[in-house]
């Protein structure tokens, strides 16, 4: 602000203020307040400072730590299934869709994206009904292809509930990697592919050798988006299995664990301080993941100037 503009430029503050105020008051301050609350506990006369006692309980008390590590491990499994199933399917669909001259591409694209726009409540209940042994849609369909013996009440068994839920979530969200990869594939200039063709690189080898390296940055972004979304997931498990994330907590993830602790369930009373401690742990996990991506992966991915 030099001489020609000696008057204060109030309009900058006016433009910034509403966004900064709402964002700070409803997002940033509560975030730090939650981290702070994790250091307190309920004393006889209200809130008292407790240092790291909540975290000692969370990691030290066998009742709490068993639940925490169970939820964290389940959450990693949930994420791994997304990475191993959702992203390859998404990339494959995008690769097929982006083939030049494919008819009806717009129709397929819109139809495959439909599950992504549905709410978790719809998705959770719809699949619960379809997989229900009472209704019998899943067993009769398996019967039609001669695989009836494969059927089991997958959502009701401890060994399979979490994997089934993860696959339902994959079914729901496959549209997102598909769209982002599709966009990345379309942005590859034709000259590059034609040059490769002249060198005899076509079809599959063109995909592996030319296109895949060029879309790696997009795959990186999809991975970190999936990571953040999975580690604060809650809705699908809650809609399909309830707050207890049954059977016997086998589908419990950090989001449902936080909800149960914060609000209480059955005989256990809600505890905002332990809830804050779990939220802080989630924050730490997400922060570590984002840092690994930003400093470990994003800087190493080779980017090509197109």
């Amino acid at each position: 602000m030099h001489k020609p503009r000696s008057r204060r430029r109030w309009h900058i503050a006016v433009f910034l203020a509403p966004a900064v105020l709402v964002y700070s008051a409803v997002m940033i301050l509560p975030l730090f307040d939650t981290l702070r609350l994790s250091l307190f506990t309920e004393g006889p006369e209200g809130r008292v400072f407790a240092g790291l006692a909540n975290f000692r309980t969370l990691f030290g008390d066998p009742n709490w730590s068993r639940q925490f590590w169970n939820a964290l491990a389940n959450n990693f499994w949930f994420f791994l299934i997304h990475m191993a199933v959702q992203n390859p399917i998404g990339i494959a669909l995008a690769a097929i869709l982006s083939a030049p001259g494919l008819r009806l591409a717009g129709f397929y694209r819109s139809a495959i994206f439909i599950p992504t726009i549905l709410s978790f409540v719809i998705v959770g209940f719809a699949w619960k009904l379809i997989l229900s042994p009472i209704w019998g849609i899943a067993p009769s369909m398996l019967d039609a292809v001669g695989l009836k013996s494969w059927f089991a009440p997958w959502l009701g068994r401890e060994e399979t509930a979490l994997t089934t839920l993860a696959l339902i979530s994959v079914w729901q969200f496959v549209g997102i990697p598909m769209m982002l990869i599709y966009a990345a594939l379309l942005s590859i200039p034709d000259e590059i592919l034609e040059a490769a063709e002249c060198d005899g690189v076509t079809g599959w080898s063109a995909f592996w050798k030319i296109k895949l390296p060029l879309i790696l940055p997009s795959i990186g972004i999809i991975s970190i988006l999936t990571f953040v979304a999975n580690f604060n997931a809650f809705d699908l498990i809650y809609a399909a299995q309830g707050a207890l994330a049954g059977p016997n907590f086998s589908s419990d993830i950090l989001g449902t664990f936080l909800y149960r602790t914060f609000f209480g369930f059955q005989l256990q009373l809600g505890d905002p301080y332990m809830g804050s401690a779990i939220a802080s742990a989630m924050f730490a996990v997400i922060l570590v993941g984002v840092c690994i991506y930003l400093f470990g992966i994003q800087t190493r991915i080779r980017r090509y100037q197109l």
Partner: peptide
Amino acid sequence: RFRGNTLWGLYLALGIMIPIRIGTVAILQG
């Protein structure tokens, strides 16, 4: 162009990666 331009930008961008649900306990209290 004003002092703190980049800083405000970064501050507002923080929320792209950090889910707002982490702050739920304090949001409810507020």
